[in-house]
Simulated assay, not measured.
Amino acid sequence: MCRDKEPNVVPMAFGYKNGVIYLHSLKKGRKIETLRINPNVCFETETDYELVPSDSPCSYNMKYRSVIGFGTATILKDEDEIKEGPGVIAGRYHDGGCDPKSLSTGRLAVIRI
């Protein structure tokens, strides 16, 4: 994210479904204020990381797969969409069911990229 020419990186849990990245946040705070001012974002994630040791600590290396992308963040307004996002996020981290219909969304903001 970028606000007033000042970039800001925020580590966040996310979910991915049908070409959409979902994030969640509280409805108030710097992150949401920044996205309302400038919805253009860059994201990065990595997986399959592995330390490649060497005889010399200065020669260690890393193996990993990563994705870097750009998009437009939308703070969702539709209640059904708002409830879908956390279900997608929870599904990425937990195999058990998260029933999105049971979520209370009072203070929750869901962001779609």
Rank of each mutant, 00 (worst) to 15 (best):
S56N: 15
I89D: 00
V41E: 03
E79I: 10
A73W: 02
V10I: 14
R36N: 15
P100L: 04
E81N: 08
R36H: 15
M12H: 06
E44S: 14
D55M: 11
A13H: 11
V67N: 08
L23P: 02
G106A: 14
S59N: 14
I21K: 01
R36P: 06
F14K: 02
D99R: 07
K83R: 15
I37A: 15
V41Q: 04
R3M: 11
E50A: 11
V20K: 06
L108M: 10
G91E: 01
G87W: 01
K5N: 15
S104L: 12
G87K: 04
R30G: 10
I75V: 07
G71F: 03
G85V: 00
V52D: 05
L51W: 10
V52F: 07
G97V: 12
S104Y: 11
A109T: 03
T105C: 08
R3Q: 13
T74C: 11
S25I: 06
K83Y: 05
K28M: 12
I113L: 10
S66Q: 07
E79D: 14
P86G: 00
R36Y: 12
N38A: 12
R3K: 15
E44I: 06
V10G: 07
L26G: 15
K27Q: 10
M12T: 06
R92H: 14
C2M: 13
P39Y: 04
E50N: 09
S25T: 08
T105P: 01
G29D: 06
E46A: 09
G29S: 09
E84F: 01
H24K: 03
Y49I: 08
P7L: 14
G96I: 03
D95C: 10
K63P: 03
N40V: 12
S102Q: 14
G97I: 12
S54Y: 06
P57D: 10
K63W: 06
K63C: 09
T34I: 09
C58A: 12
Y93H: 10
E46P: 02
H94T: 11
A109C: 04
G97R: 13
T47P: 04
S59P: 02
S66C: 15
Y60E: 00
K27E: 05
Y93D: 03
L108Y: 02
D4I: 07
I32S: 03
A109V: 04
K77V: 09
E79Q: 09
L51N: 08
K83D: 03
K101L: 08
E84Q: 08
M12Q: 06
A109G: 02
S54H: 13
K17E: 10
V67R: 08
V88G: 00
D80G: 05
G96W: 09
T105D: 04
V67T: 14
D99W: 06
S66L: 08
V88L: 02
S102P: 01
I21Y: 07
N8A: 14
G15N: 03
M62S: 11
Y22S: 02
G71I: 02
S56Y: 09
L35E: 00
V20S: 03
E79G: 03
G29L: 10
L23K: 00
E84H: 05
G15C: 04
T47Y: 12
S66R: 08
R36T: 10
F70N: 11
R30E: 11
M12W: 06
N18K: 09
R107N: 15
Y22H: 02
C58V: 06
P11N: 08
A73K: 01
S102R: 12
P57Q: 12
H24M: 05
L23Q: 00
P11K: 07
H94R: 14
G91D: 04
I82D: 00
L76K: 01
A90M: 15
G96S: 11
V20G: 00
